[in-house]
């Protein structure tokens, strides 16, 4: 796979490669010609992308390139203006039930954590299952404690988010998303608001999650994480996908000048 010709890389081939790597041929997310406007400004220009089940995609690019907008379109926090988005066979339309279904299947982790400050950590985690899935309280709390153990902060269950460090808060946010048993996890710069010494604890949780076979789309500036964990790296600039490839291809042998420029600036 390392010796494939650089210029012959099409998106479909990359997809085929990726599915081989992830060991699953099922299509999880499909974006087809997605456009998104903010007023006159076009944030996304004809985005085409396919993500297979169990695949880990890392999206990088300069700020303002549309990375966040793209993954926010996938669970309809932003509404796309043209094109088609299908998540696990459900096409996003204006039908609120479709949107709800997609949101129940996609977890989202935000840059600013967005934990609910008026609820305890455990209540933050159990709110989704109890409200959206009608799970009985006891069962939800058992699930919540399991997940908090998984992100290694069970002892903080009864505290409020404001009493936790940034890294702990972000891990609670991950547990909160996992509580809905999502099929896809979206990460919108999960470590950008963290102090350097807390980034690792969050990345470790994300690595563990990737190893467990979760389908993940991660917008991040952590190149080490991309090299280590990603099945494919997507480079975006000015609302377009410029280049897609395996981490080796992307970091060691990029095709596009735009990519080379970007890498030269950050590495």
């Amino acid at each position: 796979m390392t010796d494939k010709p650089d210029n012959a890389e099409t998106d479909d081939q990359a997809f085929a490669d990726a599915t081989q790597m992830a060991g699953s041929g099922e299509l999880m997310i499909e974006l087809d010609g997605v456009d998104k406007f903010f007023g006159d400004f076009q944030a996304l220009k004809g985005i085409d992308m396919r993500v297979a089940r169990k695949e880990v995609i890392v999206i990088i690019g300069p700020s303002g390139s549309g990375k966040s907008t793209m993954i926010r379109c996938i669970n309809r926090l932003e509404e796309h203006d043209r094109g088609k988005i299908v998540v696990d066979g459900i096409e996003l339309s204006n039908d609120i039930r479709n949107i709800q279904e997609v949101r129940k299947e996609t977890g989202m982790v935000f840059q600013q954590f967005n934990l609910f400050p008026h609820l305890t950590v455990l209540d933050n985690v159990t709110l989704g299952p109890r409200q959206a899935r009608n799970m009985p309280k006891k069962e939800a709390e058992e699930l919540g404690m399991d997940l908090l153990t998984r992100v290694q902060i069970p002892e903080q269950a009864q505290k409020y988010p404001g009493q936790l460090s940034g890294g702990q808060q972000q891990r609670v946010a991950i547990a909160r998303s996992l509580a809905m048993s999502p099929k896809v996890m979206l990460f919108d710069e999960p470590t950008s608001a963290l102090d350097p010494e807390m980034i690792k604890e969050v990345l470790d949780v994300m690595k563990e999650l990737a190893e467990s076979g979760m389908t993940m789309l991660v917008v991040t500036h952590e190149m080490g994480f991309a090299q280590e964990v990603a099945d494919r790296v997507v480079f975006m600039a000015d609302g377009e996908i410029v280049e897609v490839g395996t981490p080796e291809h992307f970091f060691h042998n990029p095709t596009e000048d735009r990519t080379k420029l970007f890498l030269s600036q950050i590495l």
């Binding site: 996609t106 989202m108 967005n114 409200q131």
Partner: peptide, 24 residues
């Protein structure tokens, strides 16, 4: 972001308002 977080854990608009926005 609070509303977005509520929506992304699958809460309906009413549940988001009642459980997340209004208390704060």
């Amino acid at each position: 972001g609070q509303v977005e977080a509520g929506q992304s854990v699958g809460l309906s608009a009413i549940a988001t308002t009642r459980l997340i926005v209004l208390p704060q």
